[in-house]
Design a protein around this nucleic acid. Structure first.
Lengths: 144, 144
DNA sequence: GATGCATCCGGCAATATGCCGGTTGCACCG
DNA sequence: CGGTGCAACCGGCATATTGCCGGATGCATC
């Protein structure tokens, strides 16, 4: 039961496209009963494979500023830092990476002020050793 | 009806965290009736503000490797480099940024080998002074 | 003050969910 | 071998949610 089998993968691929689909319809598509499907989804949620369900929001406004925060931690794993980052609605994406850096945080804020405040908040988190901020001047390439 | 007012913003922020929440509960949280809430959400969907609902999958797709290439150029603007980068289908996103770095390049490759080859290609481009590669170990947060 | 329109509300039938007991296949063990 | 435990499945019933409707309200327009 620890494995993610073919059915689970089908479930993940459907839910990653249509997260609000009724369990009954999902069950129909994968050819299982509703209860078995619900059990699988619940298991995937509890196992942390499904972290949650997000609405995919289009660009809100033109006047937004995007930036990368390149974070080096004092020690990994990043206890608490991820939770705190998730609390900021301006944080768009966080990736744990290998190498000198530990986290690449992509943010989208309304003003330079907001960026500075966010930057300060992150920089003063306990476990954060170093923080480099790079404002996106231009998006040169973006593919889907 | 074209505006996105404060209530809409609340809706978006809730749905971007809990996309599968019942409309009735959402209505309760924002203090509107269920039908009014549903209408607003439907409008946001039709207007393209809500592009869809995605399950947030903890583990990355198997077999694909994502990485950040942090590029410092000898001189800006990055004549030629952007064109060459655009030629690689594995390059997903390129951002010109301020600060020490000049470019943040997000790539998605099929193997470590492919990543190394890409890395070498980029590192030996005329205008590239320095190149740091960070492989994504885990995607911690991803919103739209 | 009549018209059109956006937005809201509540109600009812249809549908989906939560929760349960029951069945099946399979590995393990005395 | 039969017994036991277990994971995964199914279907059913009470409850919750949705889709869809008619109707109220506020507001600008003419």
């Amino acid at each position: 039961m620890q494995d993610i089998d073919a059915i689970d993968r089908t479930i993940l691929s459907i839910l990653s496209q249509e997260a609000r689909i009724p369990m009954k319809s999902l069950a129909g598509r994968i050819g299982l009963s509703r209860s078995a499907t619900t059990e699988r989804v619940t298991r995937l949620e509890k196992a942390g494979v499904i972290r949650g369900y997000r609405a995919d929001i289009g660009q809100l406004e033109e006047g937004t500023i995007q930036a990368f925060l390149l974070v080096t931690l004092k020690r990994t794993p990043s206890i608490g830092v991820l939770d705190r980052l998730a609390g900021f609605s301006t944080v768009r994406k966080v990736s744990s990476v290998s190498g000198q850096l530990d986290l690449v945080v992509e943010v989208e804020v309304g003003s330079i002020n907001a960026l500075n405040e966010l930057r300060n908040e992150v920089a003063t988190m306990d476990n954060v050793e170093d923080l480099t901020t790079s404002i996106v001047l231009r998006r040169d390439i973006e593919r889907s």
